[in-house]
């Protein structure tokens, strides 16, 4: 039941569980290395193709949290804090509430050369009253499918608006 002061509209509720347009992510040796370098990874499987192959992988492995780089189209929304889509709410401030990754390595370890399709949906809207005032907590779920149609990972993200 929505409270009288709820910012969640019927239109928003109708979005829950609806998948957005799929996004293509490319996993390459260069961007795996860049990601690994920016975290400070030291394991050679993130940098050196020969080392990765020697450990039984197809190519350089995507480091934890790296699902590839979205194909960038000029003029379309750049990457930034996750924003609402198709609706607006009266809160101005946005916080990234957290991220969780789930991997399904039996379906394939993400490696350079993979093309990943990401499909996102809103799983829930939740309203609470916090120390910062009323908040809207939006949870999203993204499913990552590789070029063989296998689900290799999922991401659960929380956005807090207040």
């Amino acid at each position: 039941m929505a409270q009288a002061s709820s910012v969640v509209t019927d239109d928003m509720r109708a979005l829950v569980g609806v998948e957005g347009a799929p996004m293509t992510l490319e996993v390459e040796k260069t961007n795996c290395r860049m990601f690994a370098r920016s975290v400070g990874h030291t394991d050679a499987i993130y940098y050196d193709e020969a080392a990765a192959k020697a450990r039984g992988h197809r190519s350089i492995v995507a480091p934890p949290g790296f699902m590839g780089t979205p194909v960038f189209h000029p003029g379309q929304a750049p990457t930034g804090p996750a924003q609402s889509r198709g609706y607006s709410i009266p809160y101005k401030r946005v916080l990234n509430g957290g991220t969780e990754y789930e991997y399904f390595p039996e379906n394939g370890v993400i490696c350079a050369g993979d093309t990943i399709t990401a499909r996102s949906k809103i799983s829930a809207f939740e309203e609470t009253e916090g120390s910062l005032g009323p908040m809207l907590i939006t949870t999203r779920e993204t499913t990552y499918t590789n070029q063989d149609g296998k689900v290799v990972a999922k991401m659960y993200g929380t956005t807090i608006q207040y």
Partner: peptide
């Protein structure tokens, strides 16, 4: 290495929106 991702990133870096670098 020259990859689709690295070409697009460089093109963004120079502020180009020419599809020859993206599409």
């Amino acid at each position: 290495e020259v990859t689709t991702t690295s070409v697009r990133m460089y093109a963004r870096g120079i502020g180009s929106d020419d599809p020859i670098h993206y599409d």
